[in-house]
Computed example of a mutant assay.
Amino acid sequence: MKWDPSKYVQFADHRDRPFYELTARITAAAPRLVVDLGCGPGPLAHSLAERWPDARVIGLDSSQEMIEQARSTQQSPNLSFQSADATQWMPEADTDVLVSNAMLQWIPEHRELLATWLEALTPGAWFAAQVPGNFGSPSHALMRQLAASARWAPQLAGVLRHDDAVGEPADYLKIMVDAGFEPDVWETTYGQVLTGEHPVLEWVRGTALRPILSKLSAADALEFEEEYSGLVAQAYPAFADARGERQTLFPFRRIFMVGRKR
């Protein structure tokens, strides 16, 4: 699946906020190695390098497009970026902070991987991750329903994950406890206000719609987007604010987990 770094950062204010609220709970004083697993185009890994200037900070991502973008803007001397497949990756022995921001939901077996990573981390190490918890919301449910319709199923059968792509907070809490972590797990629903003519479509173009776009021709992708956009316009009706500008309320639930190994 090919990623578009410029599309991914289109809603940076909304997408970055959970990362900063997540990492604010990490109180590591002088980590040796900090890993951003699923670093995307790199700006959030830069913030980790600035926070811990004496640490070696590595940003890892399976997308070559994302890694190239990250390297093109690399500034911190203690920061590097590498291509890595998270399903084959294991933390090094001196990893003191492992961060994963909105990445685990792309891996069906991430619960098992998470347990393995936490087991491998040494006592005193920190783990922090957040995942979207909105797979049951209209933005995703309507996409799955459309992909499963008679028109699109022959091309898109099995492409999209179901509504169990992530666990519930209690699932991650148990994984962390079993691995010997002192867990802090919570969820937040952000009341995001998006602007523009088709804001929900623009939002999912950067993330959830990528698997579909990678399977369809340009003409078919346009047709799918037009049909999907009509469905979500009904689910997320636009309204005019006090200045008469078009606004769309897009609630977004996220699940957070942070912990330090005993």
Rank of each mutant, 00 (worst) to 15 (best):
K2A: 06
Q10F: 06
H14L: 04
P18Y: 02
T23K: 02
I26T: 03
A28Y: 05
A29H: 03
A30M: 09
R32T: 14
V34I: 14
G38E: 03
G38S: 10
C39L: 09
C39F: 10
G40V: 13
P41Q: 11
P41S: 12
A45H: 06
S47K: 02
A49C: 09
A49N: 02
R51Y: 07
W52F: 15
A55Y: 03
A55F: 03
I58R: 12
G59A: 11
L60F: 12
D61C: 13
S63R: 14
S63G: 08
M66Y: 04
Q69I: 02
R71Y: 10
N78F: 05
F81I: 07
M90H: 13
D94M: 09
V99R: 06
S100A: 13
S100W: 02
N101P: 00
N101H: 13
A102W: 05
L104D: 05
L104F: 15
Q105V: 03
E109S: 15
R111I: 00
R111H: 11
L118I: 06
E119C: 13
P123D: 07
A125V: 11
F135Q: 04
S137A: 15
H140M: 14
A147F: 00
S149E: 04
W152P: 01
W152E: 01
W152F: 00
A153K: 00
Q155E: 02
L156V: 05
G158S: 09
R161Q: 12
D171G: 08
K174L: 08
K174P: 00
V177M: 07
A179C: 05
E182T: 08
E187L: 13
E187M: 13
T188W: 04
T189F: 05
T189I: 14
T189L: 10
Y190L: 01
G196S: 08
E197L: 15
V200M: 12
E202H: 12
G206C: 11
A208K: 08
A208P: 05
L209G: 09
K215H: 10
A221T: 01
A221Y: 00
L222G: 01
Y228P: 00
L231C: 12
V232C: 14
V232E: 13
A235K: 11
Y236N: 05
P237M: 10
P237Y: 14
P237L: 08
A238D: 04
A240I: 09
D241N: 15
T248Y: 03
T248P: 03
T248F: 02
F250I: 10
F252L: 08
R253N: 08
R253C: 06
G259E: 00
R260A: 04
K261I: 04
